[in-house]
Design a protein around this nucleic acid. Structure first.
Lengths: 166, 166
DNA sequence: TCTCCTGACCTTCTTTGACTATCAAGAGTA
DNA sequence: TACTCTTGATAGTCAAAGAAGGTCAGGAGA
């Protein structure tokens, strides 16, 4: 059953493959229920979180969101392939966990110049992470960390868009 | 996460949708009886209150009034404000110097729903001010203040960009 | 060692029911 | 007639239970 190239796959790999198959048929995103999936594979619900956090991160080209409470669910979105490598480089190398105002502004401009994102989107990012926005008394270390998070998540949000809706 | 009709909605979402459909047919306001609605959906009457208080607040673009006693009823009114008016209200009053994550997210969605800004722009704002972005150890007071600054500046940036309804 | 997997405990959102507050209309009374 | 009083029909509030998903430490394997 769970075989690949003659080797037994791990449960996590089986679940990951299952999810990827659901996402592979033209679907950009799917919604599923953690408990259902866990029941289907007869594993602990937290195993699903493990799979998601190790195999469906932005670095892998996916973004996940979720809702708790009755009727809650998990949504997994596949990022557009276009610029996938570059996006990964940006997130991991350029932005990382912390970036100062100057560097961030330069990167945002470059993104627009290279037409990776639109000028409007770049300007929105620049606004969100601008010195003016951060003109509030908190340690600059925290500012840089927060700036990186904002930048990172906004880029992911853009990458997540359905190309048809551009 | 965005609601998505289709899959499987919670009772509260179904009721909310039902009410919105009643309001969408040119009606600016409707009057209904709590018990009737509860009976129609076979739920506890207080569920109606839950729906109203979580999905029909002024931030959501609605105002509700009610009368108790025999022949009592609940009146739900859809707010009407032009884009410019609404923007001014948001910048000067609603967002102000501080706004929490939940309210900010609702307001950002509302902006798109009223077509004051595009869905993409709304999503970028929502991302920038999301709980995920702010998942960093700083006092929530500071988070709310920073969130307000980001929200305000992004809105201004968008408004400056396309002066469509001024 | 590193990855996988689980279970105990936590947070968030929904649903329900018991109890409370209010109103309108009819009954009773001066 | 005018003024209570009573009663039934509504709606509101709140706390607890229910229904998801999240986190984390630690054991189990490879």
């Amino acid at each position: 059953m769970d075989e690949k190239a003659g080797v037994w796959m791990r449960l996590s790999d089986t679940i990951a493959q299952f999810i990827k198959e659901m996402l592979s048929q033209d679907e950009l995103e799917i919604e599923l229920q953690r408990n259902d999936l866990a029941a289907y594979f007869q594993c602990a619900p937290s195993q699903i979180n493990y799979v998601l956090s190790t195999r469906f991160t932005p670095d892998h080209g996916y973004v996940t969101e979720s809702r708790r409470g009755g009727g809650g669910c998990i949504r997994i979105t596949r990022l557009r392939k276009t610029g996938g490598e570059y996006l990964r480089y940006l997130l991991e190398e350029r932005i990382g966990e912390s970036i100062d105002e100057n560097a961030a502004d330069i990167v945002a401009r470059q993104l627009a110049e290279r037409q990776v994102i639109s000028v409007n989107d770049a300007n929105l990012i620049r606004t969100a992470i601008s010195a003016q926005t951060f003109a509030i008394p908190i340690p600059s270390q925290l500012k840089d960390a927060l700036r990186a998070r904002i930048f990172r998540n906004m880029l992911l949000s853009i990458a997540k868009r359905d190309p048809q809706e551009d």
